[in-house]
């Protein structure tokens, strides 16, 4: 008995959703420039970004009289001034402590110039997958943010922008398995050490959470526990001197060293971050920089 042939139309796709999903997955993998999946995901997160957008005046506040509103603003300004005074004192103390210490290689890197930054608030932390690590920020393309820009908290590397929409963006944290960055391990002893490595996230979970690994560290390199790990500007992806973490353990493997580091990233305390407006230079720009250095 001949089998009825089915027509390939919308209803067929709706009846065979696995086929539709496979096509979607294939399009995302094989045609990455279309960015189908990313566009759909950013669109899905739009309500969250809108809900957590810039705070407008609350309806209760709008009902207050002019005098009451002035009083409220005065109280807020006093609170802000008190907080700033405390912060100022703490910073002065830290500066005094720092100036007493001898200048080392790490503080040299810490003085490296930083690119301009856009302050952003973390509106959604965490990821539904047990393997991935991400967060959502309330700043996007209209604030000058582009894909691949480094995200930092102070001078500590947090991750990089992964998907960017008009008013919000998704950040890939440095603990995500897809994250990688060229790094330098810097020793603070009498003879300063600089060892190169590639940082890879491993999707670690608590209590091992901000624990990462550095790959491609050649056997024979002198790596010690306690060395500071900083970003390297060799590839141009990240600016020089962003703090990543501290070396905890060095395990010799066949042909390379496995270096375990503890990252400075504190996801719980992450509230306001800076998206550094730093873009990877093109090949021509890198070549010109090299030529200038040689001259």
């Amino acid at each position: 008995m001949p089998r009825n042939s089915e027509k390939l139309n919308l209803s067929w796709f709706l009846r065979h959703p696995l086929v539709a999903t496979c096509i979607l997955l294939a399009m995302t993998v094989l045609l990455p420039f279309l960015r189908v999946g990313e566009r759909v995901k950013l669109w899905a997160l739009l309500p969250v970004a809108k809900a957590a957008g810039d705070e407008a005046q609350s309806p209760a506040e709008a009902e207050l009289s002019e005098e009451e509103r002035n009083l409220l603003e005065l109280r807020r300004a006093r609170e802000q001034a008190a907080a700033l005074l405390d912060e100022n004192n703490a910073l002065r103390q830290a500066l005094a402590q720092r100036s007493n210490q001898p200048q080392d290689l790490v503080s040299e890197f810490a003085q490296a110039p930083m690119p301009p930054a856009v302050d952003a608030r973390v509106i959604l932390k965490g990821d539904a997958s047990s393997w991935r690590h991400s967060c959502v920020l309330n700043r996007g393309r209209k604030h000058g943010i582009k894909e691949g820009m480094p995200v930092a908290c102070g001078r500590t590397l947090v991750g990089r922008t992964f998907m960017v929409d008009e008013g919000h963006c998704i950040v890939q944290l440095l603990t995500d398995p897809g994250f990688s960055a060229g790094c330098l391990m810097v020793g603070q002893g009498e003879a300063p050490l600089r060892v190169r490595g590639v940082l890879r996230g491993d999707g670690s979970a608590r209590p091992h959470f901000p624990r990462l690994e550095l790959e491609d560290v050649a056997v024979g390199e002198r790596v010690e526990a306690g060395m500071k790990v900083l970003t390297n500007d060799f590839s141009g992806q990240y600016p020089l001197g962003l703090a990543v973490g501290e070396v905890r353990e060095v395990i010799p493997q066949a042909g390379f060293l496995q270096v375990r580091i503890e990252a400075y990233l504190d996801l719980d305390a992450l509230d306001v971050v800076q998206v550094l407006l730093h873009e990877r230079p093109t090949l021509e720009q890198q070549a010109m920089q090299l030529l200038r250095k040689k001259k």
Partner: peptide, 25 residues
């Protein structure tokens, strides 16, 4: 059974950084 599982996977994909459709499949 089939569609709810697929939609549940898509919901997880939407809320995570990975490729859209991976958990759905």
């Amino acid at each position: 059974r089939y569609l709810p599982c697929l939609v549940l996977g898509l919901v997880r994909d939407f809320l995570s950084l990975g490729l859209l459709g991976s958990y759905a499949v």
